[in-house]
Computed example of a mutant assay.
Amino acid sequence: MNPFRWSFRKQFLLGFACCAALLGYAFYVQFHLRIQPCPFCIFQRIAFAALGLVFLVGGLAAPRSQGARKAWSLLALVPAVVGIGYAGRHSWVQLYPPEMPSCGPGLNFMLERQSWLGVARKVLMADGDCSNINWQFLGLSMPMWCLLWFLALAAWALLAGFRRR
């Protein structure tokens, strides 16, 4: 059975399952392997959760019209592009670490003092510990894998929404 020929519903529910599995693995790494996430990691998790939510609701709605499927596909693209931005920036920080050895205050502290937009801006200017590579698979760090997954899921959403039925 060719997954590229599946219904919109099946394709979107598979996208949800991928996001749920990726988040599950992130929590496994945090709580079982005891590798603590940095602020970049937290924002990537939020992007995966938002993308998964769009996949789930879109899959359950299973729109019949081509226009509605395109709209759901473009809606899924929003958290995917945000995730691509965070994962890409995190990968960049790991490849070209800044000279400052600190990632700054914790995420909870920053949220108490600033708005979400201010915290997001602060995280994007990351320095130090965010550049540590604590986990690798096939020579790629976790943010690099996240970047690949965000790209793949964005392409999957576009395929589901823009494929002729």
Rank of each mutant, 00 (worst) to 15 (best):
S102K: 15
S102W: 15
S102T: 15
S102N: 15
C103K: 14
C103I: 11
C103L: 15
G104W: 15
G104Y: 15
G104K: 15
G104P: 13
G104H: 15
P105H: 14
P105G: 14
P105F: 14
P105V: 15
G106N: 13
G106K: 10
G106S: 14
G106V: 12
G106A: 15
L107Y: 12
L107N: 09
L107D: 09
L107G: 12
L107C: 11
N108A: 15
N108H: 13
N108W: 14
N108S: 14
M110D: 10
L111W: 04
L111I: 05
L111R: 12
L111T: 11
E112P: 03
R113P: 00
R113D: 09
Q114K: 09
Q114T: 06
S115C: 09
S115R: 06
S115A: 06
S115P: 02
S115Q: 03
W116N: 08
W116V: 08
L117H: 00
L117S: 05
L117G: 07
L117P: 00
G118M: 05
G118P: 01
G118L: 06
G118D: 05
G118T: 02
V119E: 01
V119D: 05
V119R: 05
V119Q: 05
A120I: 01
A120V: 02
A120T: 04
R121H: 06
R121Y: 08
R121A: 10
K122F: 06
K122W: 05
K122T: 09
K122Q: 05
K122Y: 07
V123C: 07
V123M: 07
V123L: 10
V123Q: 02
V123G: 06
V123H: 02
L124Q: 06
L124C: 04
L124R: 00
M125Q: 12
M125A: 12
M125W: 06
M125C: 08
A126Y: 05
A126S: 12
A126P: 00
D127Q: 11
D127A: 09
D129Y: 02
D129W: 03
D129T: 08
C130Y: 01
C130T: 09
C130I: 01
S131T: 02
S131V: 07
S131L: 06
S131D: 03
N132G: 03
I133Y: 01
N134C: 11
N134A: 13
N134K: 08
W135E: 07
W135D: 01
W135V: 10
W135I: 12
W135G: 00
F137C: 11
F137Y: 14
F137S: 13
L138E: 13
G139M: 01
G139R: 00
G139Q: 03
G139E: 04
L140R: 12
L140A: 14
L140V: 07
L140W: 07
S141Y: 02
M142K: 10
M142G: 03
P143E: 06
P143I: 09
M144G: 07
M144N: 04
W145D: 03
C146A: 12
C146S: 13
C146W: 08
C146H: 10
C146Q: 06
L147W: 04
L147A: 01
L148S: 09
L148A: 14
L148G: 13
L148H: 08
L148W: 08
L148T: 08
